[in-house]
Simulated scan of single mutants.
Amino acid sequence: MEFIASLSAEAFEHNILQDVILICIVSYVFASLFYGMLRARSRGLHWNQLGKVPVDHLGVIDIAVAAILVLMFAGPYLLPYNPPDPEKKRTITDSMIILGFSTQIFFAGVTCFVVSLRHNVTESFGLYRSNLLVIVGSAVASFILMLASMYLLDSVLQLNDWLTERLGERQFQEVVNQMMSAEGQRLLILIIGACIVAPLCEEIIFRGYLYSVTKRYTGPIFAAICTGVLFGAVHGEVWSFIPLSILGIILACVYEFTGSLWSSILTHALFNGVSTFYMTHPEYSEQIKNACLLPFC
């Protein structure tokens, strides 16, 4: 307890996220070995074949690519905490915001390129499965399920109060702070990035690729949980870690249920779209500050 008390809230949050990411990585390694040994002993076991997301085209090289992607997203949290200089106030420019979203586009493009070397991207991500009714219906159902989860965490389990007692007043992600105060061109950039770029790119990377690679060497249940928790952790905020982890698991499930990445992309876009609406309307500011989760990912 003395050690925790000696840390700043930011350092404590950083250490928590660091531990979670390390647990995900170590769990994946041991789970892959465990599942591999089970399949070697019992040739009839094919957990990785369950569901509608294809994984047979993935190989050992994809583990290396997936590891690189994980390090790119999780790298800052694997390093020791480096407190910012209080005398140097960082200014966020429109160019920096565009660069951030452009980086997501770049890594999503690299992911698609790696997949295309051995398999058709459209088939791999199930993009050809365009049953609009199923995709929209599953997205709406997933969104409602996420809202129910948020209500359970906030109103029933009182996660917000529990975190406030231990971490003090909540510090939002920088992108959230920008969204709540942005106007004009910057607001337009953030809305496009949040509602179009982020859902598309993050779903390609996390569900389309990382989930599939993890499923290939373990199974759908472990893959959904592991990549979901990782998804929540790399967003860099303890307050929204549990809700976003739940969202990540739900997104993997809806992808597996429909076999189409469009369903998780639409769910993600719907989630961020509603979040953006709340963040850009000042009359909801107090509700947002008191909420367990400011739902943005």
Rank of each mutant, 00 (worst) to 15 (best):
G126A: 00
I249P: 01
A233G: 11
C253E: 12
V121R: 06
A64Y: 11
V176A: 03
S149Y: 12
A141R: 02
N131D: 01
I4F: 09
F257Y: 15
E203D: 04
F34T: 07
G228N: 09
A233Y: 06
L152I: 03
V213T: 06
I63T: 04
L38F: 02
L147M: 14
L167Y: 08
G208V: 06
T258W: 01
W262C: 09
L153E: 06
G236N: 03
V26R: 09
A108Y: 00
T227F: 05
V134M: 01
F34W: 14
N272E: 15
S212H: 07
M180R: 13
L79C: 07
F113S: 02
A291M: 08
T214Y: 03
A31R: 04
R207I: 00
L163I: 13
L79Q: 07
R90K: 14
A223P: 00
N160M: 10
Y278H: 05
Y35R: 10
L153Q: 05
I196C: 10
S6M: 11
I225N: 06
V65Q: 10
G208A: 08
V234C: 03
Q178A: 03
R186N: 03
I16A: 05
F257A: 15
R39Q: 01
L294V: 14
G100R: 12
T91F: 09
P84Q: 03
L167S: 13
I4N: 09
S149K: 02
E203K: 07
H268N: 03
G208Y: 01
E183I: 12
A223H: 00
T218I: 11
R166I: 07
F241I: 10
Y151H: 06
K215Q: 10
S212C: 11
N160Y: 05
A139G: 05
F113G: 05
P243Q: 08
F34E: 05
N272D: 07
F277T: 07
V134K: 09
F101M: 08
S95P: 08
G36W: 00
L17M: 05
R216A: 15
R207A: 03
E87M: 11
E123S: 11
E13L: 07
M279L: 06
E237W: 13
I98W: 02
P83C: 04
M37F: 09
L247Q: 05
